[in-house]
Design a protein around this nucleic acid. Structure first.
Lengths: 208, 208
DNA sequence: TAGATTGTTAATCGATTAACAATC
DNA sequence: TAGATTGTTAATCGATTAACAATC
């Protein structure tokens, strides 16, 4: 973590991917430098906040100049750890699982989906991707050094599946089951709660 | 909004679906009442926070007793507006779009997917669901009184599609394109940023 | 009634914004 | 150099926690 290794708050971390996204756009538009003021207009975060966020990780800017977009993006990539590649598997070969298996966008974040697993051994492949039986997942994780698992099983199965994965040594879980998976110490978990998001949408529609 | 109509902060609103979820579980397990202390242990939010959150909307509890789970869930449903039904369409008949079209879980939040649209008119249906041509979306929204649109088109098309939908009178957008859709005054927008979530996962994996 | 637990106010904590000296 | 803009500290704002009187 370099010289600034005090714990960074989650609110700061969740803004980093946004910085990443807009920096990518700026670079694609051949913009070489950006001031916190300009970046504020783009991202919607205050200039002060942007400077403070970035300074949690180091002094990436230059007085009188601003930030070099390419250099800053490299730093953000490094902070987020997406300069690395993660072997990734998907558990649950249902519709969502197979849709995610086919999605190429995750590769830009370094997540390489190498295999799909399902409890139903009669499913041999979905839209061209081989599906392996769940009973092989443990050995596969160990042999192929799989670090990340995407869970798209029904909520009843989520906990059980997660326990198997964690026991097999998985490091990160991206959970789409509508079940609040608690992260044990040595595993990172991101719960995607689509239903919660819909309910929030519903609330704000009422408020219009 | 009844007697408490001061603006509620988003952090409070985003906890409401969690209350909803755990209340549903309690009711399914035939638990009739729950104190803020017990509910704290279940949800992970502090008892104080739970009481304060709920009191933004009214006094739903009873001193010395706690909260009646069924009654409280009814109130939460009403607050979130999921006691109503929303006519919903999906724009983009790709893998994610069709996976979402088939998912039944959204119906419990009141979102009824009635149709799927795509710019590619050669796609007549995906996994049994009819796909309508995009040029018909405007009339369809008006005639069928569609209130919600789920966007699963490539990010380049997102803004253009959203403009058409908003112009046709849509009230809420659930956006899966990796594009930050800004909500105009009269439309509610939820941006689902899957890539951002993956990057956050990547960060926390590094931190283990 | 006595015990339990809410509703609500006050105290604390953390995050955001404002300000400005340092410096490119 | 003069102007611009960062890095960083101080001030403000908002959210969480603690405390307790009200009351079932």
């Amino acid at each position: 973590m370099g010289k600034f290794s005090n714990k960074i708050s989650e609110t700061v971390i969740r803004r980093m991917p946004v910085y990443h996204r807009y920096l990518t756009e700026l670079i694609e538009s051949d913009v070489e430098r950006v001031s916190s003021k300009d970046f504020s207009a783009i991202t919607g975060f205050s200039a002060s906040q942007i400077r403070q966020d970035l300074n949690n990780f180091g002094g990436f800017g230059q007085q009188g100049y601003g930030y070099n977009t390419k250099q800053l993006k490299e730093q953000v990539d490094k902070i987020l750890g997406i300069d690395k590649t993660y072997n990734t598997i998907i558990i649950g070969a249902g519709r969502l699982g197979s849709a995610l298996a086919r999605y190429k966008g995750f590769r830009t974040s370094g997540f390489m989906v190498t295999s799909l697993f399902d409890i139903d051994e009669t499913i041999k492949n979905v839209s061209g991707i081989e599906v392996k039986p769940m009973r092989q997942v443990r050995d596969y994780i160990k042999e192929e050094k799989v670090e990340v698992a995407i869970i798209t099983v029904p909520k009843e199965a989520c906990k059980e599946v997660a326990d198997i994965l964690i026991d097999a040594g998985i490091k990160g879980i991206w959970n789409f089951s509508p079940y609040d998976l608690k992260a044990p110490e040595r595993v990172a978990v991101e719960n995607i709660r689509l239903n919660d998001s819909l309910m929030t949408l519903s609330y704000y529609m009422k408020e219009l």
